[in-house]
């Protein structure tokens, strides 16, 4: 199927979404996504940051779609023409959505562990206004611990539902979810339960903001002063393929390996995440590939082989990456 996005044509298999097709073309046309996550079924559609204009539905039925659509949940049709960054209305609409996401966000970036790898921070930087037009008090919640290792800072949550889908799809029993409704909706556990499951730590990795953070890493270091390395170990629960975040010789935290869209390539178990914080626990493969633009490591590492990266990108965009989940 042929689809044209911002004037660039690409051939994609049936079932590909507009967002996936755009990612195959590259970052220059790929819409931002705060709630979509390739490895999580039924994710996406909520945040609305990835909206695009479909100016031609398909070759067979060229009528434009009346309203902007969520590119992450709209499948490509043959001959579809899509406008993203080239459509001023979309750019303007996205600014509006970013503003909505920010009006109740605490903007406590200086003390937030997510700073430097926060999608909302990036989005705000790219699409935000210089000053807020919102003059009212922001929503505030108490911080809560959900288990020993995870801190829930609800003030920062943008209700992307990713953590709920992780709990539903890769753990064996969801104990947290979204309660209340409207702008009072919040992530919460039921009756003070801990999210206690071998794969529960992945909610931290999928959180696009600093709402769910790793308590073992809390206030340890700004991420841009840490050095990410890919490593692996023999693990009976997960693939054991992780990313170690070093400061000197110390492993400050362990996360899943993330691709250039900031999505975990494979989910990891809590054993790998929390219980192996010595570099001797791991076989170090080498420096993690870091996007050139990233604050973490400008020019610290060589870029990955371009061809390999493209291959990886295509696979990922199509959702072919397997979750190596045992069991």
């Amino acid at each position: 199927m042929k689809v044209t996005i911002d004037g660039i044509e690409i051939d994609v298999p049936k079932g590909t979404t507009i967002l996936q097709a755009a990612r195959m073309i590259g970052a220059d046309v790929a819409p931002p996504a705060m709630c979509y996550y390739t490895n999580l079924k039924t994710s996406g559609g909520y945040c609305r940051t990835c909206i695009v204009k479909v100016t031609q539905g398909s070759a067979a039925n060229p009528t434009p779609m009346p309203k902007p659509v969520a590119s992450c949940r709209t499948e490509v049709m043959d001959g579809m023409v899509v406008e993203n960054f080239t459509n001023p209305e979309i750019v303007e609409a996205r600014k509006g959505i970013v503003e909505f996401l920010l009006i109740n966000h605490p903007l406590d970036c200086p003390v937030c562990d997510q700073a430097g790898e926060c999608k909302l921070q990036d989005l705000g930087y790219e699409n935000g206004l210089a000053e807020s037009r919102y003059e009212f008090e922001r929503r505030e919640y108490e911080m809560i611990d959900i288990g020993e290792k995870i801190k829930l800072h609800m003030n920062r949550c943008i209700l992307c539902y990713r953590c709920v889908k992780v709990a539903e799809q890769i753990t064996d029993g969801r104990v947290h979810g979204v309660i209340n409704r409207g702008d009072a909706a919040e992530i919460s556990t039921y009756i003070e339960q801990a999210i206690d499951n071998e794969f529960s730590g992945n909610v931290i990795d999928v959180c696009p903001v600093g709402a769910l953070t790793d308590k073992t890493f809390r206030f340890k270091q700004r991420v841009w002063f840490t050095k990410p390395m890919n490593a692996h170990r023999n693990c009976t629960s997960c693939s054991g393929k992780v990313r170690l975040w070093f400061k000197g010789d110390d492993v400050l935290r362990v996360t899943a390996r993330k691709d250039e869209w900031d999505e975990a390539e494979e989910f990891i178990c809590n054993g790998c995440r929390y219980d192996h914080k010595s570099k001797y626990d791991w076989v170090i493969e080498g420096p993690a590939p870091i996007h050139r633009q990233s604050v973490i490591s400008q020019n610290k590492y060589a870029n990955l082989d371009e061809k390999k990266l493209q291959e990886l990108k295509n696979q990922k965009a199509l959702g072919f990456m397997k979750i190596d989940k045992k069991p």
């Binding site: 509006g96 909505f100 919102y134």
Partner: peptide, 20 residues
């Protein structure tokens, strides 16, 4: 504002803002 389900951001955040 009272009836917004809160699922998507423009409605969740925007309806409350308009009421305020």
């Amino acid at each position: 504002h009272h009836e917004s389900c809160g699922q998507c951001s423009p409605c969740r955040e925007g309806t409350g803002w308009m009421e305020k």
